[in-house]
């Protein structure tokens, strides 16, 4: 049985960025490059971390393989509908977390 999108939350930083990068079809190294770019160099992902995560996410049906011809050495992935929901839910969760605490954190700095 497939898990509900809520059951995947919270996502690790690595997982969040991987899912975000799979808004388009990409292979492993393409994901690494996109993550580095989107995070403005804040997150560099090692191939071991990525390979393990892709296997896990595919098994959980959050991402799926995409058919790309002329390249049989690399696997290409994309988000499934479940993956899209998971990513959107996590975004909302993080956003409300930040918004709800915004004032309080600022006050904390002023004390």
């Amino acid at each position: 049985m497939t898990k509900k999108p809520e059951a995947f939350l919270p996502l690790s930083q690595a997982t969040y960025y991987i899912l975000l990068s799979l808004r388009e079809i990409r292979h492993g190294y393409g994901i690494m490059q996109d993550v580095e770019e989107v995070s403005k160099g804040e997150v560099t992902m090692g191939p071991g971390t990525l390979y393990g995560a892709l296997g896990k996410l595919e098994k959980q049906a959050v991402i799926q393989k995409a058919d790309v011809q002329d390249d049989d050495r690399r696997k290409y992935y994309q988000l499934t509908n479940l993956g899209k929901e998971v990513l959107q839910l996590e975004y909302k969760r993080l956003k409300s977390l930040v918004e709800n605490s915004d004032e309080l954190i600022k006050e904390l700095g002023e004390k």
């Binding site: 690790s12 690595a14 997150v43 560099t44 090692g46 071991g48 971390t49 393990g52």
Partner: peptide
């Protein structure tokens, strides 16, 4: 850098 970039994947 390294092949594992976060503690979760090292643990795995």
């Amino acid at each position: 850098q390294k092949i594992y970039s976060d503690s979760q994947s090292i643990q795995d």
